[in-house]
Design a binder for these strands. Sequence first.
DNA 1: GCCCGATATTGAACATGTTCAAATGCTAAA
DNA 2: TTTAGCATTTGAACATGTTCAATATCGGGC
Lengths: 228, 228
Amino acid sequence: MSTANKSAGEKTKAVIFEKALELFRMRGFEVTTMRDIARSAKVATGAAYYYFPSKESIVAAYYDQVQRRHAEKVRLELSGKAGLRERLGVAVHSKLEILKDDRMFLGALFRYTGDPDHPLSVFGKGTDAQRSQSVAIFQEAVAGTNVSEELQELLPWALWLAHLGMILFFIYDETEGQQRTHKLADGILDLFTQLIELTRSALVRPFVQPFQRKILGMLREAGWTGGT
Amino acid sequence: MSTANKSAGEKTKAVIFEKALELFRMRGFEVTTMRDIARSAKVATGAAYYYFPSKESIVAAYYDQVQRRHAEKVRLELSGKAGLRERLGVAVHSKLEILKDDRMFLGALFRYTGDPDHPLSVFGKGTDAQRSQSVAIFQEAVAGTNVSEELQELLPWALWLAHLGMILFFIYDETEGQQRTHKLADGILDLFTQLIELTRSALVRPFVQPFQRKILGMLREAGWTGGT
DNA sequence: GCCCGATATTGAACATGTTCAAATGCTAAA
DNA sequence: TTTAGCATTTGAACATGTTCAATATCGGGC
């Protein structure tokens, strides 16, 4: 399916991509060699580098695919759901659903987290575009609800950050079907939404409001994108 | 100083260690080669591997040193300080203080974060000991205060996690003296302590208590150490 | 003083990610 | 059809982290 209706190059790239993922899934990221991948795709080693700048970038390409699938899935499942909590649940659980068979090599995404200048750093300039896309999904989930404008702006970013943590947890989670991660995700989302809900109660608002302000202020201040 | 009163091996190890850090600081982690390090320490390449199992492990050794210094510094500065907020401030800011000149290669610590089985993974089994040590420092900071027993148990762990995030932020922080990270740290600590304080107010306690319970429950459930 | 096992050191070899100059194939303009 | 230019492909070469068999050194028991 994915090898049809494409230029020669596109087809080769697709083959390399698919064979790489196959090997990553079967044997793991580390032990899979670029030579293995090339051999499996029946091309020379250099060909892999003609299409992918690095081994990790193959995983990055995979993750781009994941993002597209996720956006689509969320758009589908979100229609009809109006509550914030429910919508966030859709966004997060569907993501984990998509990733469920690939925990084995997902860790490669985090390899350059500590390297601000690396093009594949999760928090770096080089991944601005992907990050925006990912945040946009949470924006969509939040958009359909009645939260304040301020929250509309910052919540998606916070959710993206939280969801990164969940993915990391996910990678380490050896429980059946990664139920533990799903539970944790639900817990975190409960917290998010309940904290927002609290602002609406006249009684406790004066106590909670400053907290929310503070958290939002910190998020704004800490924002990698907006700041100095 | 550090090369005195040691067996030959110890001395060699120390030289390699110092030269390595020197190079990491001067040129960065990535561009520094094991051959560079060995040459700089006037030993053969293999010697470096006789003492350190990998290039990253040198940074790990550095971090062990950091932990020791941190523990010492905290013990010193903590005496006389009784308030929780103040004590946590000491723990966190002193750590950043110690790390301040080494942001350039600190990222290497996070290289295997996505790889549960790697001996140097921040969250993995292989770093249990270091993790415990690090948590113990926060334990010490919390211990001198009047928080509940439950909190005594879980807060340090949560603080350790939060402080990891701060270090990551720190690495990316290009502001003068990393003031932004220090501000963020203060903000986070404020949040921690204020949330705890709230439990003591009879009025809002019924609202806040369940939150705290939920968060603690999640922490417990999520604990890498305790669980199944 | 001599020998032995443990410790320390060497440097070549290896594995693998990556680069690159050269060869090949393809397409569209002439 | 020919050909210039571009895309694709090749495989050897390179850089660097890491391993390892061989050698040297040392410290203590005789």
